[in-house]
Simulated assay, not measured.
Amino acid sequence: MQLYCVYSNGRSADCGAAANTQKAKPQSLRLLVEREARRRKDQETLLLSEEELRNIWFLMKEMGVETNGEVRINYDGFSQVLVRCRECFGPQIDPYFKASLFLKFERDNNGCISANQFLNYLNLRTSMHQNRLELSAFDLGNTGNLTTEQLEEYVKSLVSQVPALSDIQPDFLDHYGRIAVRKLLFFHGKNGCVRIRDLVNSIVLQELNELKNNQLQEHQLISNWFSIQVKRQPARDEMDMLAFTDFVLAWDHRSHPAAIKYFFDIFDLKKQGYISPAEIYTFFKEIHYMWVHVMNEYADLSIYDVVDEMLDMVKPKVFALPMPAPGCAVLCCVVIVREQITARITPEDLAVSGMSGIFFSTLSDVKQFYDYNYRENLMHQDDDSGS
């Protein structure tokens, strides 16, 4: 495999030209040469190409026996495949055909192993080794770990290799890198770093590598976290990094006027400019379900009682419409009475009450409602522990 150095602007350069560089700077040619030197040493173990893997499969079928779509091969045939492969690929192929490796596969009564499983092993090993080489190229300190910034550089370096990401604009590339690595860090990160050995066989990295397949269908791209379609496609149940940041800020400062506006737009389901008892009921219904089935609390908690408590807490200005005048038709009375219980909580009501934080918390998080519902007991516990 031909090796070459890459400048930060993407142009190739002669590795030997920088051999006498005395002082290395971040991303200097010397560091890049050292990176390529490490890759050269690692590549002493052969990386099998797709064509070479196909040739090995052809030889396995020739030396083995195929039954019901599965090829099985004994050790004699296995050894003959090694001889033929050595003629084609050289002695570097030997580690793939050791006797100890053959014995690791399950054998039938005839001493045969599944050639299909063996080829899957070769594919997996090649993929893992390729991943290790690519990831290690960004481990400039040879620590065995990648920082968040190095992961972002790695992900961005793959853009040119992935057809599905080819339309990323330069001004969006840094943003894409920050979003993409969040999943790698979520599953494998610790203190802002990820161990390379945890990534080489990671299903998350496999998801990223799947984008290199230019035959992916639209639905496959949409379901892939690393796809540009996911990052740009607006969806009701998705939030990008900036939206998530806004959410965290609003949640941590729930009583702030900016947070009131943020959450009010969510709770005002009908976009009428106020929150009605029906909307409070809708949100707390989900909390009530978790209260019973997750927190294992008492099921006789009345949702309507909580709705009334929220209204008493906020004390909205528009709480009840006037009672109908005497002599109104019965139908009119029914309509008015129904309207009478329809309070209207506005952003101003929440700001004046000073209870917006508790209001939004108890209707959004079952743990927050638990703390609110048992607030007196929790206060006594704190007093007892402090005495």
Results as ranks from 00 to 15, higher is better:
Tyr75Ala: 08
Tyr75Glu: 10
Lys98Ile: 12
Asn131Cys: 10
Asp42Ser: 12
Phe102Pro: 01
Arg72Glu: 05
Glu106Asn: 15
Gly144Thr: 01
Asn145Thr: 14
Asn55Thr: 07
Asp42Leu: 13
Leu47Glu: 07
Met60His: 00
Arg54Leu: 02
Leu59Phe: 06
Phe118Gln: 01
Asp139Glu: 06
Gly69Tyr: 06
Leu32Glu: 01
Met60Trp: 04
Ala137Met: 10
Val33Gln: 01
Glu66Gly: 03
Thr45Val: 12
Gln117Lys: 15
Tyr75Leu: 14
Glu44Met: 15
Glu36Arg: 05
Leu122Pro: 04
Thr147Met: 05
Leu101Asp: 02
Ser136Tyr: 04
Val65His: 13
Leu48Val: 00
Ser114Thr: 09
Asn55Asp: 07
Ser49Asp: 02
Tyr96Cys: 02
Leu103Gly: 09
Gly111Ser: 01
Glu70Ser: 08
Lys41Thr: 15
Arg132Ser: 07
Glu66Met: 11
Leu140Ile: 06
Phe78His: 01
Arg39Asn: 10
Lys104Phe: 10
Arg35Glu: 08
Met128Lys: 06
Asn110Val: 11
Met60Lys: 00
Phe97Met: 10
Met63Ser: 09
Thr143Lys: 09
Asn131Thr: 08
Lys61Phe: 05
Phe105Lys: 01
Arg86Asp: 04
Asp108Lys: 06
Gln117Trp: 14
Phe97Leu: 09
Glu62Asn: 10
Val65Tyr: 13
Ala99Asp: 09
Pro95Trp: 03
Gln80Cys: 09
Arg86Phe: 04
Glu134Pro: 00
Leu82Arg: 09
Arg132Pro: 02
Arg132Tyr: 08
Met63Trp: 13
Pro95Asn: 10
Asn74Leu: 08
Val65Ile: 13
Glu134Lys: 08
Asp108Tyr: 08
Leu47Ser: 06
Tyr75Asp: 04
Leu103Phe: 13
Ile113His: 02
Ser49Ala: 08
Arg39Gln: 12
Phe105Thr: 01
Leu48Glu: 03
Phe105Cys: 11
Ile113Asn: 02
Gly141Phe: 09
Asp94Arg: 14
Leu82Tyr: 06
Tyr75Ile: 14
Glu52Ala: 01
Glu36Ile: 13
Ala37Gly: 11
Val65Gln: 12
Asn68Thr: 10
Arg35Asn: 11
Val71Ser: 00
Lys104Ala: 14
His129Val: 04
Arg107Trp: 05
Asn109Gly: 14
Gly64Tyr: 00
Thr126Glu: 00
Thr126Ser: 03
Arg84Glu: 10
Arg38His: 11
Val65Asp: 12
Tyr96Ile: 03
Leu124Arg: 05
Val71Trp: 00
Ser114Trp: 03
Arg86Ser: 09
Asp139Trp: 02
Arg84Ile: 08
Leu103Thr: 11
Asn55Ser: 11
Ile56Asn: 00
Arg86Leu: 07
Gly144Pro: 05
Asp94Ile: 15
Gln92Lys: 13
Lys104Leu: 14
Arg72Asn: 08
Val65Ala: 13
Arg54Cys: 04
Tyr121Ile: 06
Asn142Trp: 12
Leu46Phe: 02
Gly69Leu: 07
Ile93Leu: 12
Thr147His: 02
Asn131Met: 07
Ala115Val: 02
Lys61Val: 10
Val33His: 03
Glu62Phe: 11
Met63Gln: 13
Asn55Pro: 01
